[in-house]
Design a protein around this nucleic acid. Sequence first.
RNA 1: GUGGGUGUAGCUCAGUUGGUUAGAGUGCCGGGUUGUGGCCCCGGAGGUCGAGGGUUCAAAUCCCUUCACUCACCCCA
Length: 420
Amino acid sequence: MIMEIITAVKGFKDILPGEAGKWQYVEEQARKIFTAFGCLEIRIPILEKTDLFARGIGEATDIVEKEMYTFRDRGADLITLRPEATASIIRAYLEHHLYAADPVAKLYTIGPMFRRERPQKGRYRQFHQLDVEILGYEDARIDAEVILMLIHFLKSVGLKSPQLELNSLGCPSCRPSFRESILQFLQGKEGDLCEDCQRRISTNPLRVFDCKMEGCKHIIAQAPVIQDFLCGGCRDHFAEVLASLAVFDIAYTINPRMVRGLDYYARTTFEITTDFLGAQNAIVGGGRYDGLIRDLGGPDIPGIGFAIGFERLLAMMPADQCDDFIKPPALFIAALGTEAQKFAYQLCNRFRMQGIPTEMDYTAKGLKSQMKRADRLKCRKVLIIGDREIEAQQADLRDMQTGEQVKVTLDNPEEWKDRI
RNA sequence: GUGGGUGUAGCUCAGUUGGUUAGAGUGCCGGGUUGUGGCCCCGGAGGUCGAGGGUUCAAAUCCCUUCACUCACCCCA
């Protein structure tokens, strides 16, 4: 009987050793930079109660409506594989009363998210995000600071020209009047809108701005823009964000038609896109969510954050940034014969315990094939031991780049281990 | 959820109007070098041609069904 190999679930990808080094590099870079900006790591569960996302992200969003992995936990609560990190971070912040000791919390997390969409380039059902959330500051300088950190990070991993788009979505005191005027504007034009947008009029009219259908884009081009409806507070706030960005010469374009797919955003929102990546061109999305913590049952504390699409970021990193993440072993021990193998086995593991990455071959093959393996592993040096060498307590240490060989003593490896 | 494209060796791909034993490059194993990698030369292993059905004397090739992958719509990071 032929056994069929079990494959991974659709949209779920393996990160193979060849690419894992790249992941580690980007993660390290992120930790370094986020830490310098005062962020602390938080690790949160992958499963949450479904209500958290329904309340946090918004019932009418696509994510909640049709993309979540939701199931019943053995007949108990409805639980969901997290589709994003913000709601979970705020849940943890509230659950552990982090705001009691200090309302300000600057947090980051790195991990997998899950959305059941049709996979394509730059879009997987399990994907990873680098997520930063700054809670407790309303100051517009924080908005700019977050963006500064983000762009600094993106450039540090080799991203050539991140394009920053900005908008302000207003707040609960000014958005209703904007919403009203949009509804008025769309009145009578329903017939010219696509099916989805007709539905959006009743669910979330702002999302019509996001539509990519030519007909809808044409109509929306003449629609009123949020900027004209911002209240004094929001207008000042946005102006100060721009002024603070100017301090660091951060280039941006204001996109008054940019709205976001999650309901909780207010005031500053931003997106970073690139044209390298096909249709899925957004690598970062973020913004301010001043009402969210309260909506989730907490005190009225403001917040701002962003999420970077890890896979998309990696896909855009220049090739020369992606090489050489695999560190080859420093030493290969080629051992011929029983005695030499015995000796090699000991020495190999002794070196490893001293932190020297060392490899050997256990199949008793000829020297030629062991050399070949050493070469394939890209080892810098090879120690060649046979019965002759055991007898003489001296072996050849070969430099694989220059081909030079020197005699080293076997009874005292400490003498030459620094030369590996 | 809706469209398009592609499935042949581990990988990248050829394969003519249907025709005999399905190929190349690369990788892997071995040899040329009795104990020295890379370059070169020689040899070897490796394929139910995605799966199922149909047409035919004959199917990788034509038809149908199905599955997988992929790109795009949509949505978003």
